[in-house]
């Protein structure tokens, strides 16, 4: 199962990077529906993909591995997601099978 999850996470990571690259362009907005459908297919495999972009980051968040850029390490926000976080749901439990790889940036208040 672990090997299978690893392979699926690799696909999810490629998908994530494709989505991130294409969705920056206004022209490609119509593709978002396709991306949602692929995500739904992942969900049918009990894999829940979450992109934490824009969310708060702190050292208690173990679902992300962060590099902290910028001058401040206070009030951290996730500004870039290199790999999304992936949960595997089985028998009502959530298992974190991939931590998100993110870049967080601090903003001094």
């Amino acid at each position: 199962m672990q090997e299978q999850h690893k392979a699926l996470c690799n696909i999810i990571n490629q998908f994530h990077s494709l989505e991130a690259k294409l969705m920056t362009s206004e022209e490609n907005q119509s593709l978002s529906r396709r991306f949602q459908r692929i995500k739904k297919s992942f969900e049918e495999l009990n894999l829940f993909v979450h992109n934490p972009i824009g969310e708060d980051y702190s050292e208690t968040r173990l679902d992300c591995e962060a590099s902290i850029s910028g001058e401040s390490s206070e009030n951290l926000k996730i500004i870039e997601v290199i790999k999304p976080l992936v949960y595997f749901k089985h028998e009502g439990d959530n298992e974190l099978i991939q931590r998100a790889l993110v870049i967080a940036e601090g903003r001094a208040e």
């Binding site: 050292e59 208690t60 968040r61 173990l62 679902d63 976080l85 439990d93 974190l96």
Partner: peptide, 21 residues
Amino acid sequence: SDGGFDSGLLPMSKQITADLP
């Protein structure tokens, strides 16, 4: 239990509050 949150080690006191994500 899923491995997504760890508060780290904190000193225990008579009354504590914690925000759980």
